[in-house]
């Protein structure tokens, strides 16, 4: 059992630091954003499982040779917990606290997000007027150009009047195609755990890397979908006009990210060959399977 715990700990630490950093720095994700998103989710899930599992496996080691047998022994006689030494008990407590914290943070951020969205939607329904040129889009009467979508079961697509002033109709269609991709593929659900854990533990570099990388990947994916539906030139035109007018245009990182997005649409990198795409997805499954097997192996 101790050896399994050590293996899980090493796996967890590897995933949290060098693997996350490497994946964030890799170039291939821009050639297969969907595959890369799957790998990020697998890294997060496997890393969490491995670190929590390491604590639990080590903590329960005195009760049996494998985790399933130790859990069975514990269920048969809960007073067995007294047999754990100090170090084993501490490891178990740390793992349980960490698990509680992870779940608690995710629940709190989800609750806050849903509440903020409901408030925003209530106000939108009162203040924004439907835009006749595109079904489902609403216009907010404000001169600063901003386009966004409010995800959820009752989603909303919003353009400010500033967008309609700044863009011609084809460019507006490109913006809407991009936002609809976010809504249809529920990118908000993909991002939520990374935002929740990344913002509450900014000291874990891997989590921050993951948050930034995932945010960039969903934009790539939405750009890909939009570029397939409208002419790419309309999408780049919309990005240029809106990017120049955005309040964040003064930030160097914002303009750098915008340039990277523009460059990617104008000269799309070749998509990964099919074989590699399959390999990426298989790697994601294997990543999650590894700690699961280590935990459940009889």
């Amino acid at each position: 059992m101790e050896l399994t715990a050590l293996g899980l700990l090493v796996l967890g630490v590897l995933l949290a630091e060098p693997v996350s950093r490497g994946l964030a720095a890799a170039r291939w994700p821009s050639r297969d954003p969907v595959g890369a998103l799957l790998v990020w989710q697998a890294v997060g899930l496997a890393g969490g499982l491995a670190l929590l599992g390491a604590g639990i496996v080590y903590g329960l080691a005195p009760l049996g040779p494998t985790l399933p047998s130790a859990v069975r022994a514990l269920l048969a006689d809960p007073f067995d917990l007294r047999l754990l030494g100090v170090t084993h008990a501490l490891a178990l407590i740390a793992a349980v606290l960490l698990a509680g914290w992870l779940v608690g943070v995710l629940a709190a951020v989800t609750f806050r997000t849903l509440r903020a969205r409901r408030r925003h939607r209530d106000l939108l329904d009162l203040l924004a007027t439907p835009w006749p040129a595109a079904p489902g889009a609403r216009v907010l009467d404000h001169p600063v150009p901003v386009a966004y979508c409010l995800p959820g079961m009752r989603s909303r697509l919003v353009l400010s009047a500033g967008v309609l002033d700044a863009l011609d109709p084809p460019a507006v269609r490109a913006v809407l195609a991009h936002e609809r991709a976010h809504l249809r593929e529920r990118h908000d659900l993909v991002v939520l755990p990374f935002v929740a854990w990344g913002t509450t533990a900014p000291f874990v570099q891997g989590m921050v890397c993951a948050q930034v990388a995932v945010a960039a990947l969903i934009e790539m994916r939405a750009d890909d979908v939009a570029a397939a539906r409208v002419a790419p030139a309309e999408l780049t035109g919309a990005l240029r006009s809106m990017g120049g007018a955005a309040p964040a245009a003064a930030l160097s990182s914002f303009t750098a990210a915008l340039d990277r997005r523009l460059h990617r649409i104008v000269e799309p990198p070749p998509p990964l060959p099919l074989g590699l795409k399959v390999l990426v997805r298989a790697a994601a499954v294997a990543l999650v399977a590894l700690p699961t097997l280590l935990l459940l192996a009889p």
Partner: peptide
């Protein structure tokens, strides 16, 4: 996480 902007 509450909303997704066009400009990311």
């Amino acid at each position: 996480a509450a909303l997704a902007r066009f400009l990311g």
